[in-house]
Write a protein that binds this DNA or RNA. Structure first.
Lengths: 197, 197
DNA sequence: TGCATAATTTGACGTGCGTCAAACTTCTTT
DNA sequence: AAAGAAGTTTGACGCACGTCAAATTATGCA
């Protein structure tokens, strides 16, 4: 099977996961609406301050979202891997500028849909709205978990908790970004991992 | 105008805000689905660990959400005032136990809808889904703001930022809860406000 | 009005972790 | 295989803020 076909399968499986079996006509329109895109390490999928014009879902690779604070420091707020949505959700729905940028941490393939096609599709097949709500719900829960994580005061415990709830992050992501995600200095994370704190 | 009629007006205005004009039939079903409820200070609207059976919107009063962490400490994660949704969103949609409890900080009136009626209504009038997505989007943005707030390292700056983005909180909420919301000791917040830090 | 309880302030002290700096290790690229 | 860049570790030092304790002020209720 070619890589393109493979990606298509993945994308369809992704949609099915949220809304169940897809009808012939639904699939037809869906295929007209979705596109695939490749990114190299360091490429931006979404830029902070811009209103997102599309919704992307990771097929392969790893994406990181971050924003720059007033002191110019980069704050990592999310990681997105295979079979996860990776775009500024709230901003996409609310049509406001995104607070965060999304960047490829390694070669990335995504399936994406433009805002226009997205809403056109939903108008045609309203039953898909339910799936959207579910995705949003997952996003909310994920965000809540991160907030909860960040509220743990001790660095050691914060890292411990991360290992507990998202161990895959620790194996795939450079230390710098994990430290940033956990809101601690790189050096502190290093010491925590060495058991020196 | 009676207080009950007044609340009804508020509720309808709230819905209109998200989906525009409401048709006769829509309103009729809506009125069959929604209920009002009163809470006294300290009453729980939602309990952590339970799957929310309803969606509530504040008509009057103030609500606070919090969770208890492993050390038994109470962590405030949100405040909800007039014309805001106040319920565990992600959990409501995803049918998972809520991470947080919601409690009335003062006498509260809410309009609520059961999950059953909620989905029944949406099936009957799918165009309302769009409004739901918007509410979810607002929630996401709100959550993102709080996370961003929490990532500011200095207590002083964290409080300053809160004043900037949600000044109403500072006037309506006891210090203890603000401190908890900002992830700092009550004493630290007191010193920050006195300009001693 | 006065008493009890809650809310906020002030002080003293200790420490976790950020910052700066430098060494060491692991990837890239040619 | 060498040279450079990127990623990670280690050490030294200081201070912001948490904790404990007690004083002061505000609030509710008889």
């Amino acid at each position: 099977m070619s890589s393109a076909e493979n990606h298509l399968q993945t994308a369809i499986a992704y949609v099915s996961k949220y809304i169940g079996n897809i009808q012939e006509e639904e699939l037809e329109l869906l295929l007209q609406c979705i596109r695939f895109a490749n990114y190299q390490k360091g490429d931006l999928l979404y830029r902070h301050g811009e209103i997102p014009k599309s919704a992307s879902f990771v097929i392969t690779g790893a994406v990181r979202s971050y924003y720059i604070d007033e002191e110019g420091k980069e704050n990592t707020v999310g990681f997105y891997f295979e079979n996860e949505p990776a775009f500024p959700y709230g901003s996409f729905v609310e049509l406001v500028p995104a607070a965060a940028s999304f960047v490829a941490m390694e070669p990335v393939v995504v399936v994406w849909i433009s805002r226009h096609d997205f809403y056109h599709f939903l108008e045609t097949f309203p039953r898909f709205e339910t799936g959207i709500a579910k995705v949003l719900g997952e996003y909310l829960i994920k965000g809540g978990q991160h907030l909860k994580l960040m509220r743990i005061d001790s660095s050691r415990e914060r890292y411990k908790k991360l290992l507990e709830i998202q161990p895959e992050i620790v194996t795939r992501v450079p230390l710098t970004y994990i430290a940033s995600y956990l809101g601690m200095a790189l050096e502190t994370l290093s010491r925590v991992r060495a058991g020196k704190l």
